[in-house]
Simulated assay, not measured.
Amino acid sequence: MKMSWEEMGVTRISCPCGKGTISQSHYGDDWNRFKDGPVLIECEECKRKYRVESECNCSYHPGHGDSMAYYLTPLDYPPYMGICENTVFGSLHHNISQISFADYLIENYSLQDLIVAKEEYSVKHSSAKVDGVAKQICRDHKRFFNSVKACSIISYLETAVCSYAMYHGSYDQRIIVRKEERAEREKYNSEKRKHQVKIKL
């Protein structure tokens, strides 16, 4: 039976100009689940100046859930225009129907990992005997084809290793751009934070 969410309360604080408020509703259901609604600017003057942006603060400690931080960002603040992995190479292909399994391997594994997996398969000739990255590739093959035939996996590994250097958007290429993007985004966000107003709900 589908349970509906019920509003449990609303948190309100004064907006930056002091002429209105900023609010967030809180909801619960019969399964003792809780969630927060969107943060709303309830001030016409501040709506003309700001937009609400959120940032998830992930927790890696057991028993501590992720939390959200909210900010008011000036409407005229420029968007991030730096290097972007998806712009350079396109999005990663997670659906094997879109590309060949060899291309999937190139996009998701380093050349060194593929060479190691190929060598292990060449020695052991059995998916039941491989370990490490070769075992993970075996699982990928089973997920896509419902098969763990060693001869098929070896063939794809050989194609991937031979095609790696000429492939646009390989894992090794993406890692380089990913690091550059992370550094540029951190710099961008650090500067943007100077212009934002943190919402303390």
Rank of each mutant, 00 (worst) to 15 (best):
E45R: 02
Q24D: 06
K35R: 15
M1D: 13
K35I: 07
C56T: 06
I22P: 00
G18R: 05
W31V: 05
H64S: 05
G9K: 11
C46F: 05
P16V: 09
R48S: 15
I22V: 12
K47T: 08
Q24W: 05
K47H: 05
G20W: 01
S54Q: 02
E45G: 01
P16T: 06
S23R: 09
E7K: 15
S25N: 08
P16C: 09
D30S: 11
Q24E: 12
P16G: 11
C17T: 01
I13Y: 09
N32Q: 14
E45W: 00
P16N: 11
Y50E: 02
K19G: 13
V39K: 06
Y60T: 09
R51N: 04
K19Q: 14
E53L: 02
D29G: 12
D66M: 04
G37N: 04
T21M: 08
S4F: 13
A69M: 06
C15M: 05
V39D: 09
L40Y: 07
M3S: 14
E42Q: 13
H61V: 13
F34W: 15
K19T: 11
S23M: 10
E45Q: 06
K19H: 13
S14C: 07
M68N: 02
R51P: 00
M1L: 14
T21N: 12
P62I: 01
G18C: 07
E42M: 10
Q24I: 10
E45D: 09
I41G: 03
E6Q: 09
K19D: 14
C46W: 04
G9R: 09
G20Q: 08
S14G: 03
K49Y: 04
P62F: 06
E53K: 11
H61A: 10
E53D: 07
E55M: 02
S4L: 11
K19F: 06
M68I: 07
G9T: 01
H61D: 11
Q24M: 15
C15G: 03
H61E: 14
H26M: 12
M68K: 02
K2Q: 06
F34K: 15
E44L: 08
S25E: 12
